[in-house]
Design a binder for these strands. Structure first.
Length: 292
DNA sequence: CGCCAGGCCTTAC
DNA sequence: GTAAGGCATGGC
């Protein structure tokens, strides 16, 4: 495998790799030691398969070391948004004490840009489910239906293609622990496999239209659509209204509760700074969920 | 035992 | 357009 490093000087604002891949925004990365989400320090390697290439990454001081079946720099730059200027983004964020505490706690965390189909399926699986178990479902899907790839003497699994997931049965996915989400995953995979719609197309639309468009997939409502907008398609203004953020709105921003999803979303988006509200949301989510 | 988890679907109004 | 009820599963 090829190897290289990305020095801290190439990462505006630095990098917190563990927070980036263990904050519930991406379910594409796995640890060699298998200890995701246990709160244990991650001084080892994370791996994923993207574009058919094996990619391994670990944090070294304030930079990144990588091993890959290809030149990982462009791929990793895209997937982990390494070009995002974190200090500039933070400057555009309101001087709200909750937001600033969250930024301080996980400074260096970046938004991800997961592959659209993979992001779509993982967030369909996320409904009424804890982060750790969402991740476990993606591991199960990859091991059951993903293409095995050999690299460096190890076997890795790609994420299943739409065709492979569409060919799975609801019963099989229930056996993997997906519960009532199983038929949603099969039907959405079939829609993509048959060419009815491709989630990547939504990136060409204005943000609110993209969110609405994505709800055509089965198992995708406004919240899941917002997650795909933010964690895959690059709509950094998206603020998914999940249970944690709704609690934060009730406690800290009660005037932003406007009843409907669309109007509450607009209000909290402005409160969190507008253009980069999704960054603020992701820091706040991770901070609230991991404190104590 | 009950409650909750990065909600969505169907049905009824 | 909004409101209620059902839905799988595992951890606490």
């Amino acid at each position: 495998m090829e190897r290289g490093t990305i020095p801290a000087g190439d990462l505006p604002g630095g990098i917190d790799l563990q927070a980036t891949v263990e904050s519930g925004q991406s379910y594409c990365w796995f640890r060699d030691d298998g200890r995701m989400y246990e709160g244990a320090p991650a001084d080892g390697w994370y791996w994923t398969v993207a574009d058919g290439e094996v990619l391994r990454v670990r944090q070294v001081d304030d930079g990144l070391a990588w091993e890959s079946t290809t030149d990982a720099v462009p791929l990793l730059t895209r997937l982990h948004r390494l070009d995002d200027d974190l200090p500039a983004i933070r400057t555009a964020t309101p001087a709200d004490p909750h937001l600033q505490s969250a930024y301080d706690a996980y400074w260096g965390m970046r938004l991800v840009a997961d592959p659209p189909f993979r992001s779509l399926i993982s967030f369909i699986c996320s409904a009424q489910m804890r982060v750790e178990r969402i991740h476990a479902m993606q591991v199960a899907l990859a091991e059951a239906y993903g293409e095995p790839i050999q690299a460096g003497g190890e076997t890795y699994h790609a994420f299943p293609t739409p065709d492979r997931l569409a060919a799975a049965t609801e019963a099989e996915l229930r056996d993997l622990g997906l519960g009532y989400r199983a038929p949603y995953v099969v039907e959405t995979a079939r829609m993509v496999a048959d060419g009815e719609a491709d989630p990547a197309e939504a990136a060409e639309l204005p943000y609110e239209e993209a969110r609405e468009w994505l709800t055509r997939f089965v198992g995708v409502g406004q919240k899941v659509a917002d997650c795909v907008c933010l964690f895959s398609l690059g709509f950094l203004q998206a603020v998914p209204l999940d249970t944690w953020i709704r609690t934060a709105i009730a406690e800290y921003y009660p005037d932003c509760d406007r009843g409907s999803y669309a109007e509450t979303s607009r209000a909290i988006r402005e409160r969190l700074g507008g253009e980069y509200a999704g960054y603020a949301q992701t820091y706040l989510f991770h901070y609230l969920r991991t404190r104590e």
